[in-house]
Design a protein around this nucleic acid. Structure first.
Lengths: 223, 223
DNA sequence: CGATCAATTTACAATTATTTTACAAAAGGG
DNA sequence: CCCTTTTGTAAAATAATTGTAAATTGATCG
């Protein structure tokens, strides 16, 4: 599948730029507007979006109003808003928004939530193809050159995260958060051990690169 | 690349000018007010700031009051204050300020703290572009003319500091503080050796200038 | 309860990174 | 110029990180 397209409506320069850059790194296609009206004008001409990130307070037309235009097309919305404005939260979620992020937020947190929203909307691939592997996220199975390879649950989850983020170095901390869901502090070699298992079982000694002091990267040259 | 915008509220002419000048050199965009009320009046019309430096004692409206206006927008605040006024410190930090500088302060110290605060608020660029390099601070990777160059962790950290402070000479002592985090006293050639590695690996013999008796400077004429 | 299997921790070996050393080369500074 | 100090850098020494087998812990199920 081609990459998911994300509509961004955000007037703050710094945040908009950061979003654009990070989503691009994460493999999304983005279109960014600093004005709600402009976003809508463009949207009526081209509504091929899979997800929208809308700042609530934005010039031209506010985020809630923008959402009304997206609704008929079933495009899920995640709102971005300045500090704990509980009213916006209520209005946004009851109005049909999928999720809600309070600024300033962690980019990784946003990426995780976007993943979840896209999965719920059935806009993610169920089968990933990386290197010589076919990873079935519904059956939790992996085939390598057509032959089934048996992975334990955590090994599988780790492989999925590496595959979804191929060619990108991921720190041990982030792997722990993404796969294990823990904000683990202190020392643990769990990640390393599981990486070792994947390397052994899938013969990925070369393809899973160690990034010293940081973490690991699954390399797939072809892209 | 657009720069981070900093709101400065400081009535002392000399300090205000110094801040404006130094931050501009360091690549920030600044707006400076000498009166708290004026700053707030302007802020309600344009709140596109990434950080605020607030003098506590300032005419019109004091720093704490100004902060209350910034809070809802999640704009981090660093207080500047005349003396070692412990009360202000307590009031400021408990009121939500990110950090606190006592005058007179080292400009480099302030720049360091600003960096930290911006990073915490997720408002720093993840990808730096300097000379022919693209430095990805999330993946800890460097591309030169599109080709990946492999750096060891400390080499990478050093490059980031040089890049963030390009065209500014940095002493060995400060490099040690910024990269290695140590207030190392005495003799060490560690910095020199790592500079040598960067020059070799990235062919920056010309661009990393030695500043005799002081330290080094990464030059990027284009700015 | 055990038996079984997955997950994590431990412990130590292997590898890689960092710092120091030592000397050569270059730069200042009379 | 010459002498002194500073800097460049290869290579040795030291330190830290990573790989991984094996032991331990935890969870599940009859």
């Amino acid at each position: 599948m081609s990459r998911n397209r994300v509509l961004i409506v955000e007037d703050e320069e710094a945040i908009g730029r950061l979003l654009t850059m990070n989503l691009k790194m994460a493999g999304y296609e983005t279109v960014w507007f600093q004005d709600g009206q402009e976003a809508v004008d463009s949207f009526v001409k081209d509504h091929r979006f899979d997800l929208a990130l809308l700042d609530v307070m934005v010039p031209g037309m506010d985020g809630f109003a923008v959402m009304e235009f997206l609704k008929p097309y079933g495009i899920p919305v995640i709102f971005l808003t300045a500090k704990d404005d509980i009213n916006s939260k209520v209005q946004g979620l009851s109005g049909g928004a999928e999720d809600y992020m309070v600024k300033p937020f962690e980019m990784l947190e946003l990426l995780l939530r976007m993943e979840k929203v896209l999965a719920r909307a059935n806009k993610t691939e169920d089968i990933l193809h990386v290197l010589n592997m076919e990873i079935n996220t519904i059956e939790h199975s992996v085939k390598q050159n057509g032959a089934e390879v048996s992975l334990k649950p955590m090994e599988f989850e780790l492989l999925v995260v590496l595959a979804k983020n191929k060619n990108r170095a991921i720190s041990r901390e982030n792997l722990l958060r993404m796969v294990w869901g823990t904000d683990y502090m202190g020392e643990t070699r769990t990640v390393d051990v599981h990486i070792g298992q994947l390397r052994k079982k899938l013969k990925l000694g070369e393809q899973i690169k160690t990034v010293s002091k940081l973490g690991y990267r699954l390399e797939d040259v072809e892209g």
